[in-house]
Amino acid sequence: MSGPLLEVKGLKKSYGAIRAVGGVSFQVMPGEIFGVIGPNGSGKTTMFNSVLGQIEPDAGEIHLNGQNITGLSPLQLNQRGVGRTFQTLQVFGKMSVRDNLIVAAQEHRGTMWSRMFAPGDSGLGAKADELIDLFGIRHVADKPAGSLSYGQQKLVDIAMAFMSEPALVLLDEPCAGVNPSLVGGISTLLKQLNQQSGVGKRASSFVVIEHNMDFVMDLCHRIMVMVEGEVMAIGTPDEIRANKQVLAAYLGS
């Protein structure tokens, strides 16, 4: 009936002689949590940034809801409902946590002109509060984001990507550097956000890069294994666990 939400076809990107991504293709279905695993340097982040318009791929096509979005800028992709986080922390350090969340969605409200006269919170206070409570960061909501602990900043960073209720969110290592007790919390949060238990929210799909194998196996519906810029396997967690090639090349180590 409905086709894939995201379709990546033959994506390639080289840095000089280094072939970071060498012909990657995959599909993400509506509502799906799609995991991407692979050793360091296997091209996961490069693939992400090519899909997201942050860097220009050498070849390949990207389709969102059947529309060709290849070559669009990060801004245009965000306007079309694609959210993301970065591998490294990217919060607005001097703004309060609440303002970080508000600025993460305000540009989706009205026009540039109307925003000049809009209230400071753009009417997003309730939405921000909802995520503040969901992420358990109420006690730091009014502090500058830069003054928070690494784990708290990571939560703010992830929450920001969800403020504009995007249809597709790409998360690059949401658990990197986070202490183990918080990893489970992030997994629960992402599941909740994916199942949109709240009223009036759109179903959303995620693509999640992560090293933490338990996290990925538990969270994701399907998983893609990348090795040296190539797709080694795509399948359900059980299929990936049972894949001998993957076991030998990656999980076995």
């Binding site: 997201l52 801004l75 959210g83």
Partner: peptide, 17 residues
């Protein structure tokens, strides 16, 4: 807020619209 976001982190700001 948009100006401040631009100052603090233009790449993240653009990814947020």
């Amino acid at each position: 807020k948009a100006f401040t976001a631009l100052r603090d982190n233009p790449i993240r700001a653009e990814s947020l619209g």
